[in-house]
Simulated assay, not measured.
Amino acid sequence: MASAGIDGEVARLQAALTRDVPGRIVDTPEDERRWAALAQAEIKARGQVIRRPQLVVVVDRNPAIQQMRIVLAQPSGPWRSLGGTTVSTGQEGRRGYFISPTGVFLHTDEILDWRAEGSFNANGIRGLGLRGMRVWDFGWQTAERGWENDGGTAEIRLLVHATDPDTLEQRLGQPASKGCVRVPGPMNVFLDRHGILDVDYEAAAKADPRYEAVLRPDRTPTPLAGNMLVIVDSAPGLVAAAQPR
């Protein structure tokens, strides 16, 4: 994809973010460089390679940050932040709650996503958000038990999903989940409608109706679609190790 085409698509997506995602976070040049550096360092540390211009979803699990960004990653040229929102990741101190793992997690057609039913749990909460909200499934991952101090771990199903808009969405911006990444409903719809993480799903949907059924019928998939969820931690003491050398 030519540079002019990339710039045009980034501008289109940024305009859509501004229009469709209330409270979208816009970075200063300094913050943009920080998010790019954290993403680059994590991707390199995990042995992943950016071979074409593509979008990656970057989440900072630092309890003092609790935000995500959509970042344009390029094999050459600057990495750019399109903007983002607050999120919630895993919470410490509660039994059964895990610390969201750091790393690069690929969204591939090896796992079939699903959509929220919008049903209430025993506490009267729609844990995955309104009916029809997308649930991105990154499979079983090793996570630290947040209620223990001995470094014990267990396997969790790592998901990115919405949350109850009436009771929990206003709490985004602080750790609150059992290990998954919670995003606001409007950001869930944005990622879904523009296929930000769906490059493999779009290819699979051409031959397998199960994947076509998961994707939105009104989608406008971006040619910059990727498949990487990058979870970083910029907490003090970890930032130096995260900077690229």
Rank of each mutant, 00 (worst) to 15 (best):
135 V>S: 09
224 L>P: 00
5 G>M: 06
199 V>D: 15
100 S>T: 15
239 V>E: 15
51 R>D: 15
38 L>T: 00
174 Q>D: 10
34 R>N: 09
140 W>I: 10
131 R>M: 01
15 A>Y: 00
175 P>V: 09
215 L>E: 07
145 R>I: 11
185 G>D: 13
47 G>C: 09
238 L>I: 01
187 M>S: 12
238 L>R: 15
124 G>N: 07
152 G>C: 03
179 G>S: 04
206 K>L: 12
134 R>N: 02
239 V>W: 14
185 G>N: 13
175 P>M: 02
194 H>N: 10
82 L>W: 02
16 A>T: 05
109 D>S: 14
218 D>T: 11
98 F>T: 00
66 Q>P: 01
14 Q>R: 14
71 V>D: 00
210 R>F: 01
51 R>T: 15
187 M>C: 04
236 P>W: 06
26 V>M: 11
37 A>M: 11
244 P>I: 06
116 A>V: 06
174 Q>C: 06
148 E>F: 13
89 T>D: 00
84 G>W: 07
36 A>T: 02
104 V>I: 02
132 G>I: 05
131 R>I: 06
76 S>F: 10
142 T>E: 15
25 I>V: 14
10 V>D: 04
141 Q>G: 03
167 T>E: 09
87 V>Y: 05
137 D>S: 07
107 H>G: 03
216 R>G: 08
1 M>E: 10
16 A>N: 10
27 D>E: 11
83 G>Y: 09
211 Y>R: 03
189 V>Y: 07
31 D>A: 14
82 L>C: 01
110 E>S: 14
188 N>Q: 07
240 A>E: 15
48 Q>D: 12
4 A>V: 12
223 P>F: 06
85 T>M: 03
163 T>I: 12
119 S>V: 13
175 P>N: 03
115 R>Y: 10
136 W>K: 04
79 W>E: 10
122 A>T: 11
9 E>W: 08
6 I>R: 08
201 Y>F: 12
108 T>S: 13
173 G>Q: 06
93 G>R: 06
98 F>K: 04
229 L>G: 09
227 N>H: 13
125 I>D: 07
177 S>D: 02
45 A>T: 11
69 R>E: 14
58 V>M: 09
